[in-house]
């Protein structure tokens, strides 16, 4: 009998701790499948953040580290420098990467650390119960912006890909979404590219996944996808911002 679908080798037989309808599981799977395909499992390692994906260190079936809030790019820097023969990624949410960890991500990118960063942007703090994130949209209600995010008071959402694209060193920067099957297939290709570049030692690679949070948005999974398409995508436009691996490279 032909096996047409199975758990990737790089995911352990551990149940995810994510809410129903959450896309973290999909993002994990894309990474794990790609690690398998590229034959990287024996030298792969990653860093889990603080946030909903804090337990990511339990899910991947290779050695993993768990970092302090926002510090994953610094931890990954230390790891890659200590054992350059290994391939290192970080997996971070929007609060972790774009608020408390802003300095670490900007400087890891600016050094062109040979790591891959997978950034899941769902415009909210999930683990702590739905507080405002640096990527929360203007007017969007959260538990700490109960009247809607007032851009005049707290500023506008941070577009991380655009920000990092001002730096010289990054090798590859792309924003994808997890909002439909075709988009997920595109996202997989971006992950494949990032980890291939990682394997080849090309430099710093960065993938942003525009995603959802049904639980804290108070919408069912299908409506969440719809809401994100209508509201997040216009602000966080998918696309390749930087790919030094292609002809003509920069944009």
């Amino acid at each position: 009998m032909a096996i047409i679908a199975k758990r990737p080798d790089s995911l352990r037989e551990v149940s995810f701790t994510y809410c129903p309808g959450c896309m973290h599981g999909v993002a994990h799977r894309l990474i794990a499948e790609t690690v398998d395909e590229l034959g990287l499992k024996n030298q792969m390692t990653g860093v889990a953040p603080v946030g909903c994906s804090v337990f990511a260190y339990k899910f991947f079936d290779f050695d993993m580290a768990q970092a302090a809030h926002g510090r994953a790019p610094a931890v990954a820097t230390g790891m890659k420098r200590a054992r350059p023969e290994m391939n290192v990624f970080t997996y971070q949410g929007d609060g972790d990467l774009a608020a408390i960890g802003t300095a670490e991500i900007v400087h890891a990118a600016n050094r062109g650390e040979h790591i891959s960063v997978f950034f899941v942007n769902n415009a909210i703090y999930g683990m702590t119960g739905g507080q405002m994130a640096p990527t929360t949209l203007p007017g969007m209600k959260t538990t700490t912006s109960p009247y809607g995010r007032d851009a005049n008071d707290i500023g506008y959402p941070v577009r991380v890909c655009e920000l990092l694209n001002t730096l010289e060193a990054p090798y590859y920067i792309e924003r994808v979404s997890l909002l439909s099957v075709p988009e997920i297939i595109k996202a997989k290709k971006a992950v494949q590219k990032a980890l291939t570049y990682n394997k080849e030692g090309r430099g710093f690679t960065f993938i942003e996944f525009v995603s959802t949070c049904p639980t804290n948005w108070g919408l069912d999974p299908v409506k969440s996808q719809q809401w994100a398409k209508e509201n997040m995508i216009p602000f966080f436009k998918p696309g390749v911002f930087r790919d030094k691996g292609t002809e003509g490279g920069q944009k």
Partner: peptide, 19 residues
């Protein structure tokens, strides 16, 4: 490696020590 901050430096230590 000259880190961007003391905070980053000690977390780089954490990463390297973990190896």
């Amino acid at each position: 490696l000259q880190a961007e901050s003391e905070v980053a430096a000690i977390n780089m230590v954490y990463g390297a020590a973990g190896m």
